[in-house]
Amino acid sequence: MGQTARVSAFVWISAASLGAWLWLLLCQGFFWRTDVRLPPRVAPARWPSVCVVVPARDEAEVLARSLPSLLAQDYPGPAEVFLIDDGSTDGTGELARALAERSGGLPLTVASPGEPPAGWTGKLWAVRHGITLARARQPAYLLLTDADIAHAPDSLRELVAAAGTGGFDVVSQMARLRVESAWERLVVPAFVYFFAQLYPFRRVGVRGSRTAAAAGGCVLLRTETAVRARIPDAIRHAVIDDVALARAVKKDARGHIWLGLAERVDSVRPYPGLRDLWRMVSRSAYAQLRHSPFLLLGTVLGLALVYLVPPVALGAGLVLGDPVTALLGGLAWLVMTGTYVPMLRYYRQPLWLAPLLPFTAFVYLLMTVDSAVLHYRGRGAAWKGRTYARPSAVADEG
Rank of each mutant, 00 (worst) to 15 (best):
R185G: 13
V188E: 09
A190P: 07
F191A: 12
F191V: 09
F194K: 15
F195C: 12
Q197T: 10
Q197F: 11
L198G: 06
L198M: 03
L198N: 10
R202M: 14
R203E: 15
R203H: 14
R203N: 13
R207L: 11
R207W: 01
R207D: 14
G208R: 04
S209L: 08
S209V: 03
A213S: 14
A214R: 01
A214K: 01
A215Y: 01
G216Y: 02
L221V: 13
R222G: 13
T223L: 03
E224L: 12
T225D: 05
T225F: 10
V227N: 12
R228A: 15
A229K: 09
R230S: 12
I231W: 00
P232Y: 00
P232C: 01
I235H: 10
I235C: 04
H237Y: 12
H237L: 12
D241T: 10
D242M: 00
D242W: 00
D242A: 02
V243K: 00
V243M: 02
A244D: 01
A244V: 02
L245Y: 07
A246M: 03
A246D: 03
V249E: 11
K250E: 11
D252M: 04
H256M: 07
H256L: 09
I257G: 06
L259M: 11
L259T: 08
G260K: 06
G260M: 05
E263Q: 15
E263C: 06
R264Q: 14
V265M: 05
V268C: 09
R269A: 05
P270A: 01
P270R: 00
P270Y: 00
Y271I: 03
G273K: 04
D276S: 14
M280L: 12
V281Y: 07
S284I: 03
A285W: 00
H291Y: 15
H291V: 08
S292I: 08
P293F: 10
P293I: 14
L295W: 10
L295R: 13
